[in-house]
Every structure is written in C-alpha cells, then in structure tokens.
Nucleic acid binder design. Structure first.
Lengths: 106, 106
DNA sequence: TTCATTGGTTACTTTCCGTAACCACAATAA
DNA sequence: TTATTGTGGTTACGGAAAGTAACCAATGAA
C-alpha cells in the first residue's frame, strides 16, 4: 500500500471549476466576450464551429452560473446582447494565463 | 451589416488551447500531476469518476502533446509513472489562476 | 407579396464517455 | 499445486453530449 500521498483528496472548488470551465466551448465563449458584449449571432460568427443549438444551451448555463448577463434589446427582430458579470470577467482574466501559455508553447 | 468588430478572428493558438484544455478531465489530470509524478492507478484513485478507458486515452493524448512523460518501471506487475514536462508544468501553473478564481467565486 | 434577419427550437445522426468484463504476467496465499 | 491479487491497460456495449439541418414567429425591406 504505497499511500504516501500528502494529499489524497481534490479540493471541491477545484474539482467543480474544472467540471465547469472544462465544458466544451466555455473557455472560448468567455474569451470572446472579454473585449466587449456581443450578440448571439456575433458569438456564433466568432466561433463558427460552435452550433447554435449548443451555443443556446451554453449561454443558458453561463447565465445560470452568474458568468454572463442576457440583455434583451427590443429592436425590430429582437436582439440579445450577452455581457460578462464581474465573476465572468474575473474568469476571463484567469483564463488569460492559459492563453499566454498557449502563445508560448503551441 | 454591423461589422464593427475590432477583432473578428480568434487567435489560432488561443483556439487550439481551448480545444485542448477544454477536453474533459484534462485540467484535473494536470492538476493531479502538479504535486508529484503519479502512477496510473494513483491518478485513477485521485479522480474516481474518470474511467480507466478515458484515462488511458487522455494520457496518450497528453503524452503525444508533450505535456506528460510516460515512464515504465519494470516491477513485478509493471508500473507506469506519469510526470509533467516543463510544458505541462507551465500549463499547471497557468491553470492555478483558474483555481484561484474558483476559490474566490465558487 | 415575397424575402431576409433575429434568436432560438426540434428531430436526427454522429461522436464522446462511463460500465463492466476481460487480458497477460507475475507474486502471493491457500 | 491451484486459486487469487494487482498491474496497466483493451474491448464491446449503451447512454449522454454535441453537430446538422430544417423550421419557427415577428418584423422590415424590396
């Protein structure tokens, strides 16, 4: 029994955050919203490989998690604008460390 | 045509890194290997919800990407030890920013 | 009147992932 | 001897996640 692990339990928060930010497209969506708020179709244009079906689903999840705010603009065809909350913006900043890693190593 | 996007192309490296780190379990695996190298079964014990099938698959991918080194220890039943490369360790450090975010916001 | 645009939604297919059984090999237990 | 255990996988199978394409209501433009 080689149980010389100093730590044999993963921190709950850490586990939760990887379960969350590790979901497909989440990183790119947050990254996309960092510069400025964007409409549904703009996000979709930005990430063409992300289908509308999943984009809808992911945005709903991000809204429920307090990462994103969904703002309805009552135009002719109604427009929806998504913006980051403080929580979401903080996540985006944290993710920039990973982006820097990518620029160095990929 | 409201094409007043200052940036309408995602950086390739950024896109690639999210396609990569956004894969299920990758973050937790790198996190797990940060403290010290670990054997296959130790990783599996650390992340019980990650199946052996996918763990095998993910470790192979991480090895191919130069994140991890697979070291064969010729014991009675052969043991495999996985350790992070410099590239992998750098990724782990970048991910700590996300973990800090998690500890603050989750 | 017909067409395009908005942000979705719906059915269908493909891909991903968890479950459980299995493998060879050697050491140990009975 | 024979059965059992532990190693790091691999395999077949089923369910969940995600991609594809068609469709929707409401409005405005041609």
């Amino acid at each position: 029994m080689t149980s010389q692990d100093s730590t044999n339990k993963i921190c709950n928060k850490v586990e939760e955050c990887y379960h969350f930010t590790g979901k497909k497209w989440v990183g790119l969506i947050v990254y996309t919203l960092m510069r400025e708020p964007k409409r549904f179709s703009e996000i979709h244009t930005f990430i063409p490989d992300l289908s509308k079906r999943v984009l809808t689903e992911r945005m709903k999840e991000l809204e429920d998690s307090g990462i994103v705010i969904r703002n309805v603009i009552p135009d002719r065809p109604v427009r929806i604008e998504y913006s980051l909350t403080k929580k979401g913006n903080d996540l985006g900043i944290a993710l920039q460390a990973v982006e820097s890693w990518a620029k160095k190593w990929l």
